[in-house]
Deep mutational scan, measured.
Amino acid sequence: FSITQFVRNLGLEHLMDIFEREQITLRVLVEMGHKELKEIGINAYGHREKLIKGVERLI
């Protein structure tokens, strides 16, 4: 299971460039909250919320 699959499953594949540029893996994403996601350029609250909720389902 990769970050690419995870992001695609959430319908947020347009954010993949950010994850690749910042070298974010699923392991790193698990540790990130709204503040960190915003810092790397994910400005939409809804997108950040989707990512965080998606990660919570993985754990």
Rank of each mutant, 00 (worst) to 15 (best):
L51G: 00
V55F: 09
E20D: 11
L51A: 01
L15C: 05
I42D: 02
I40A: 06
L10D: 00
I18Q: 03
L12W: 01
T4F: 14
E56G: 09
V28W: 07
E56H: 12
F6V: 05
L29R: 02
A44E: 15
E56K: 15
E49G: 04
E39Y: 08
Q5C: 15
E39I: 08
R21L: 06
I59S: 08
F19P: 01
E22D: 06
E22W: 07
F6N: 00
G41L: 04
E20N: 13
A44K: 13
Y45M: 09
T25D: 09
M32Y: 07
G46H: 15
V55L: 11
I40N: 02
R21V: 05
S2C: 14
K53P: 00
L29T: 03
I24S: 01
Q5Y: 09
I59M: 14
H47K: 06
I59C: 14
F1T: 10
F6M: 05
E22T: 07
G46L: 13
N9G: 12
I42Y: 00
R21A: 09
D17Y: 15
R48W: 06
E13L: 11
G46V: 15
F19W: 02
L29D: 01
G46P: 11
K35W: 06
M32I: 04
E31I: 10
G46W: 15
G41C: 06
R8I: 11
I24P: 02
I59D: 06
H47R: 03
R48L: 09
E22C: 10
Q5H: 11
G54T: 05
T25W: 04
E56N: 10
H14S: 11
T25K: 05
K38Y: 09
E13N: 09
G54V: 05
Q5R: 09
E20L: 13
I59T: 11
R48Q: 04
I3Y: 03
K50L: 12
S2V: 08
L29W: 04
G46F: 13
L29I: 06
E36T: 04
K38W: 07
G54A: 14
L51R: 00
I40M: 08
E22V: 05
R21E: 06
L51S: 00
L15S: 01
H14Q: 13
L26H: 03
V55S: 08
E49S: 09
H47P: 08
Q23F: 08
L58T: 04
L12T: 01
E39P: 01
E13M: 11
A44N: 15
G11A: 06
L10H: 02
G33S: 07
T25S: 10
E31G: 15
E31S: 15
Q23R: 15
H47T: 15
G11S: 06
K50T: 12
K35F: 07
E20P: 03
G46I: 15
T4A: 14
E31K: 15
L58R: 03
F6A: 02
Q23V: 07
V30F: 13
N43C: 14
L15D: 00
N9P: 03
R21W: 05
Q23H: 14
L12P: 01
L51Y: 01
G46M: 13
R48K: 02
I52Y: 02
L12F: 04
